[in-house]
Amino acid sequence: MIAFLIKRLMHAILVMFVISVLAFAIQDNLGDPVQQMVGQSVPESERAALRDRLGLNDPFLVQYARFAKNAVQGDFGYSYFYREPALEVIARHLPATLELVFAATLIIVLLSVPIGVYSAIKPRSPFSRFFMGASIIGISIPVFLTAIVLIQIFSIGMTVTLFPEGTAWGAWLNSALSTQGNMPSFGRGYDLVHVMGHWDTNLATWDGLKHLVLPAVSLASIMLPLFIRLIRAEMMEVLQSEYVKYARAKGISMRRVYFVHALKNTMLPVITVGGVQIGTMVAYTILTETVFQWPGMGLMFLDAINRADIPLIVTYLMIVGVIFVVTNTIVDLIYGFVNPTVKLTGKPA
């Protein structure tokens, strides 16, 4: 166990190193940060002086060596825009993103497991067919479109006049399809509860939860169809296996067969995929957070790219690399608990 964690720590360091080299190598293509920091009429001599002060004129290796030396001591440089240490900026934006990912994950787990299991058990029911069809559509709709549609329906509101207003059924359909729309469409709201450090939570107040709903739903919408289909496919396969047949032959109740014996084995691959996907979800927050102006890491990163805020970009990429390593490590640990036959260090027990 300890050996495994140390190995993973080495992985994390290697990943950070590689990412930092790559990020540094492409920084010239990210644009000129100085351009964003001065007015348009500022003479070239002033710009050159600023570039010099920021050390942007030094050769690649000199810049990298300086960065690496400081980074080893935990100093990742100053963000040009926030005028604060980059790590501090990220720490301030991290809780918002984590809460969003947490809420989305919760939605995915609570919906995908029952729907997936149900449509595996009763593949021919209309309910299952509906969800299989919907999940195909769900997979193909880009997240920003989902987000915009959600905002239109639930924040702005929609008046439907598609059906003849004169008839009773038309009026009823119209009013049934129209929405009032008063869900918050941007930001985290003003009713946050301070937990600790940089962490203010949305989860403790009604207003905070309301702000969380739309972003979480649109973030979940990317992964949800995938998980429903995955769970369904795995479950159907497990239901064909010998041990399930044997359990049924033994006369164990179907309920117990489905939810204790079959589901356990279904979840094994789901956990592996899920862990990786949660890492991916951190990346997807960039789009979701931008549409909903959710002040998390994704929005911060996109702004940093637009401003060519290089120290912040490099640090963000490294942190995301670490997040991937950490989630994978946790997945492996959970996997070990769920399936004790798997040995983490690869050695026989």
Binding site: S155, I156, N182, S185, F186, T290, V291, F292
Partner: peptide, 12 residues
């Protein structure tokens, strides 16, 4: 910053 979001924020 996002145009569509800004307009939506006003309309909502």
């Amino acid at each position: 910053a996002e145009n569509a979001s800004r307009v939506a924020a006003l309309l909502s």
